[in-house]
Every structure is written in C-alpha cells, then in structure tokens.
C-alpha cells in the first residue's frame, strides 16, 4: 500500500482572463520511505500539485476541482475541511518552502519557533519543548546548537536557516515531507550539504519525501522515483535511472538534450523552440505537440494522452508514438 496516492488531481486558479487548470489530471503514488521527485519548468504545475496536498495556496484564488489525495490511514485529503487539515499539516505531512527566510518568523528566536511547532500539537512543557528543539537542531547538524536556539533568523546564513526549517518539518515525525525547491536559493556547496542531510534524515527516520525542483541534477542525486510534468500533466514517470538515463517521452528527452552538461563544446545546444501553452485554453491532444519535433497530426487531437507503460513496467509515459527517435541523432 502506498503512503500517498494522488488520483486524477485537478487544481484550478481563477483570474481575470479565465480559469487556469494548473494541475489537470495528475496521478502518482509515493511509497513509504521513498524520495519522489517532481520536475518541470516554470508554470508546469509542479508547485501547484504539491501545494494542493496540504491546500496551501497562500490566499491565491485556487481550488481543488477534482480527484483524490489519499493518505494511508487518513483518507482523502482533497475533500478535507480546514479543521481536519490542521491535524494533517505538520503532524502527518510537513512542508519545506524554497525561501527559508520567509518561512521563519523574523521576530522570534529559532528555539521558540521550533518549540511552538511541538507545543501546538503535543501537550508538553516549555522546558521539554525547548529540549526537543535542541535535539532537532542537533539532528539537522547545526553547529553549536545551544547558541543557535537564541538566535533570530536574520543572524543565520541561508544554509543554517534551511536546516532550521527542516528541523521544524521533522519536529512531529511526519510520514511525508514535501520540499518545494528547498535548495534553489542556496549556493551549490551548501545545496550539496542540504541534499545529503535530507537523504540522511530519510534513511534514519523512514519518512517519505516529495522533492519539487527544476534541476534534473538534484533529482538524480537523491530521488528514487520521479515524475516529469508539462503544462499541468505528468508526461513521464518511473525510477530516476529509467527516466534520466533512458527517457522515453519527447519532452523529457528534449529537456535533457538542452542541458549544457550533455553536449560537447564543438556543437550547439539543442533548445526547445517555442514556449509552453497557456493553461486557460490549452491545445487539444498532447500539450507538448506544438513544440515536439516528432509530432504527427494525430498527436494534436482529442484528449491529452494517458500514461501507459513503455517497455519496462513502472516506467510510464504519455506519448502516443510507438517509436521516438533519439533527439540528438
């Protein structure tokens, strides 16, 4: 049984120009103890998908318009009221945001903020909560943790702040942590430290992690399985090695071919021409078809194609072509 099963999730944002279907029929499972990566470019719906899990839309005019978010033993989160959600947030599923400075209260000492998370959900004394906060700072390998308890967020570096946010996420021993671009604002040497920390925490606590990122390299480093999103839909999913080393969907292939690390200096990079479609009235058929080098007339009609196995089991993609030529060839 999967820890989390998302089935045909649809999330809409309403605006003056109409309703944008940011998440339009997304399905995937997250297994216990697994790190699941969701990748895609800006506007593909990766953040909207993971924010939908806890209904964290930050006041944006968004609503879950359909589908199910099944958390093992808890039921369908998609239909929960705010009251029920408050028992899931933090305790069952925790969230780590991209920018740790905005996720922390600038007027409150670190120790008190972590303790507050604990005291909101458990009946413990202030002293016990502070001791627990200290343990959590040690757990996320903060140096001289006793001193940091009394620091304010602005006194910490970006990497230390993100460690504090991770400590708060771990505080209630959630079964699932959703991390939305947790290392994007950090320098690469610090990113490396934070990724190692996340994996190490998964190994020792057995928590599952959903990692949302635009960086395929980050997914390759720490994820077990992954989904590639494009224009509100999952276009390919499988193990990280299946998807990155033998990608099958033309979009995944094009995305990998566009990376500078994959091409010798003597040849030009292979960009994807054009831009992603608008989500208010997306084109019929496969949404990548207008930019796809291999598109045929049948690609651009009807409903968007569903995910189906490609060769190996558990490696699925949403391309109707039976043979996709090598992009670089």
């Amino acid at each position: 049984m999967s820890l989390l099963s998302i089935r045909d999730l649809r999330t809409e944002f309403s605006g003056p120009a109409g309703i944008a279907r940011a998440v339009d029929g997304v399905s995937f499972d997250v297994e216990p103890g697994e790190i699941f990566g969701i990748v895609g470019e800006s506007g593909c719906g990766k953040s909207a998908t993971c924010r939908s899990i806890l209904h964290l839309f930050g006041g944006a005019p968004a609503r879950i318009a359909g589908g199910q978010i099944l958390l093992e033993g808890t039921g369908d989160i998609a239909r929960m009221t705010e009251r029920d959600l408050s028992r899931v947030r933090g305790r069952e599923v925790a969230f780590i945001f991209q920018d740790p400075l905005t996720a922390l209260n600038p007027t409150m000492r670190i120790g008190k903020q972590i303790a507050e998370v604990i005291r909101c959900h458990r009946k413990v004394s202030k002293t016990e909560a502070r001791a627990a906060a200290l343990d959590l700072l040690r757990e996320v390998q903060v140096t001289s943790p006793e001193r940091r308890l009394d620091a304010y967020p602005h006194e910490l570096s970006g990497g230390l702040r993100q460690r504090v946010v991770i400590a708060m996420a771990l505080a209630l021993r959630p079964r699932l942590i959703i991390a939305d671009e947790p290392t994007t604002a950090l320098d690469v040497t610090v990113q490396d430290q934070i990724l190692r920390l996340l994996r190490e925490r998964r190994d020792s606590t057995g928590t599952s992690i959903i990692l949302v990122t635009h960086d395929l390299g980050v997914v390759s480093q720490i994820c077990d399985r992954m989904a590639v999103m494009y224009a509100g839909r999952v276009v390919e999913t499988g193990s990280v090695r299946q998807v990155l080393d033998t990608p099958s969907h033309p979009y995944t292939r094009a995305l990998l071919a566009a990376l500078p690390g994959q091409t010798g200096r003597e040849r030009d990079l292979t960009p994807i021409e054009g831009s992603p479609p608008g989500l208010i009235s997306p084109p019929p058929g496969c949404r990548f078809a207008p930019r796809c080098r291999f598109a045929r007339p049948e690609c651009a009609v009807g409903q968007p194609p569903a995910l189906h196995p490609r060769g190996e089991t558990a490696h699925l993609d949403a391309c109707i072509l039976t043979e996709v030529p090598d992009v670089l060839a």
């Binding site: 470019e41 800006s42 635009h214 395929l216 094009a254 995305l255 566009a258 990376l259 500078p260 030009d268 990079l269 292979t270 960009p271 994807i272 021409e273 831009s275």
Partner: peptide, 14 residues
Amino acid sequence: LDASVQAQIINLLR
C-alpha cells in the same frame, strides 16, 4: 531562465 530557454540564449552568445 528555464533550461530549454537557457539553451537558446547560450547558443546566441556563442
């Protein structure tokens, strides 16, 4: 810029 667009600009600079 996103990776697919990044590649266009890098090609242009080259």
